[in-house]
Design a protein around this nucleic acid. Structure first.
Length: 264
DNA sequence: AAGACCTCCAACCGCTGTCGT
DNA sequence: GACGACAGCGGTTGGAGGTCT
């Protein structure tokens, strides 16, 4: 099931995502949000197309993604919704927090399509964090990312009854909060001032919880979400600012230092 | 033991909808 | 209204891993 890595004619990488690419994407989205999927890979240092980054993030890397077998309740809900609205996978996915449309679609075709769930025939959910499928190939790094994401997810889910957590992913709120108004690819050099102004109006981005649902209910603070990334070294403090791309992160670093969570 | 076949799912592809100009 | 850019959606595919013979 792992696609062989390859490159298209534009030199963009295709196929399975590596742990390093996952790290870069997580790092970037955690820092800057997904303000523009098309431009994101360039700024994140990824040789991927924007669509691929979006898919990877939405289906596997975003913090509240649920992995593993579908429960009977979820199966029942999928069946009911499919009966009423058909193959509207994204709409169905919105009713199953943490499940991606892709996952539901696959589950439907593999288990539910023929009338009844046979998901019980799957003794153990496969490794959904698809950087390495073979168990013997799984590196410590993979395990670290898995546990990292589990921790990040746990932090969010702990504070949120899962059924009350709507889609899309909470972290995408970052982009809507911080960068959605910046259509320019070069938002960062001007956005600091803009953002600073918006934070004055909307509170302090770096100290206020930022993972919110549509109703504005707090899901997870920046600290809760980013700390595990930090501890595993997936997010590294920037070197002294020599690139304004690091400014937003620098503010976060300052905040962490101020709260004694980061030794600079 | 090993080859054939099957299952499942990550990822790709192409299309559509939305928004800004 | 026309056009382009972009995000999102749903169908399809590739292929690893499991099961069968």
């Amino acid at each position: 099931m792992v696609r062989t890595p390859s490159c298209d004619k534009n030199g963009l990488k295709k196929g399975t995502w590596t742990p390093e690419e996952d790290k870069k994407l997580i790092d970037y989205v955690a820092n800057f949000g997904c303000w523009n999927w098309r431009q994101l890979p360039k700024h994140a240092g990824l040789s991927r197309c924007g669509k691929s980054c979006r898919l990877r993030w939405m289906n596997y890397l975003r913090p509240n993604v649920r992995r593993g077998n579908f429960s009977q309740e979820e199966d029942k809900l999928i069946l009911e919704l499919h009966r009423s609205i058909g193959n509207r996978w994204s709409t169905i996915a919105r009713q199953l927090p943490g499940r991606s449309d892709n996952e539901i679609k696959n589950h439907w075709h593999s288990s539910l399509k023929n009338g009844s769930s046979n998901s019980k025939s799957k003794p153990v959910a496969r490794n959904n964090l698809k950087t390495c499928t073979r168990k013997e190939d799984k590196t410590n790094e993979d395990v670290d990312i898995e546990s990292l994401l589990d921790n990040a997810t746990h932090n969010i889910l702990e504070s949120t009854p899962i059924l009350a957590c709507p889609q899309p992913s909470s972290i995408s709120t970052i982009s809507s909060l911080s960068h959605s108004d910046h259509s320019s690819t070069n938002f960062k050099s001007t956005s600091v001032e803009d953002d600073a102004c918006s934070w004055e109006n909307n509170g302090d981005f770096w100290t206020e919880p930022f993972l919110q649902d549509f109703e504005g209910n707090v899901k997870c603070s920046t600290d809760d979400f980013l700390k595990p990334f930090f501890e595993l070294g997936i997010i590294c403090p920037p070197s002294p600012i020599d690139d304004d791309e690091d400014i937003s992160f620098w503010f976060y670093g300052l905040h962490m230092a101020q709260t004694n969570q980061l030794q600079l």
